[in-house]
Design a protein around this nucleic acid. Sequence first.
DNA 1: TTTGCTGCAAAAGTTTTGCAAACTT
DNA 2: AAGTTTGCAAAACTTTTGCAGCAAA
Lengths: 138, 138
Amino acid sequence: MDAEQAAKTKLKEIGMRITPQRVLILKNIIAMNGHLTAEEIHRELPSFITLATVYNNLKYFAELNLINELSFGSSCSKYELADTSHYHVICESCQQIADFNYPLLNEVEYAAAQVAHFKVHRHTLEFYGLCQECKKKK
Amino acid sequence: MDAEQAAKTKLKEIGMRITPQRVLILKNIIAMNGHLTAEEIHRELPSFITLATVYNNLKYFAELNLINELSFGSSCSKYELADTSHYHVICESCQQIADFNYPLLNEVEYAAAQVAHFKVHRHTLEFYGLCQECKKKK
DNA sequence: TTTGCTGCAAAAGTTTTGCAAACTT
DNA sequence: AAGTTTGCAAAACTTTTGCAGCAAA
């Protein structure tokens, strides 16, 4: 299935109206497969789509757990597809984000839910440090 | 040792100039012992201290690892003292943050550093869900 | 005395919003 | 036809900055 079809399918699944804007935004997130800012996504889109529309839809997508909003580090949020489970390693010098695949910490999540009396439905784990290039520069 | 003395000691330790503004800001963070926004900290301070000064100093404090900046969830960052090791449980409905004490995941941190070729010096772990009150409301 | 810090005010940057027109279902 | 979504432009918010005067070492 190509990214466009995947985007439409996802939108249908979560019951959102399928507009060209939404399909294009989601398609780009799927195709670029990274950690993108609203601005970066907008830059790839045809110019009739406004940045406000991008922001509004990213917000909806995130609320419906289609994407994750990553708000650590730099001043603006980054977004990624929510369908892969992994953690993040972040360079504090150049802000680059790397994915880190590791078995999910389900027992820890369970313990946190018990102790805090929360209904926990997901967790994130971030490692902060210096990437290889920035390490060398110091 | 009271919060004021503790604040001065900490400032001296990290080699910052001791100004009344800094002592008051840090004293408040110590005394309130929570997860505070710049605005909330500013509100507690005498009015001659400007919000810009609060922001600037929070940034310095965070760079020198005196405090942690928590930037998940809501639109503005929250700050906490950096001297306790714990994780966070966040309510996605009311934005409340609870602390969760748990042994540090040092092996996972080591694995992440190896895989990503990063020099990792810290990590954070956040659990997202609903707190007891918000659970009831649904 | 030197250097760094603060207040002030303004700027910068990100994200949200109101509304009429256009589009999806 | 009903109800959403979009573009546009402006607003709202958080955070940063420039600079002159002041304060800490």
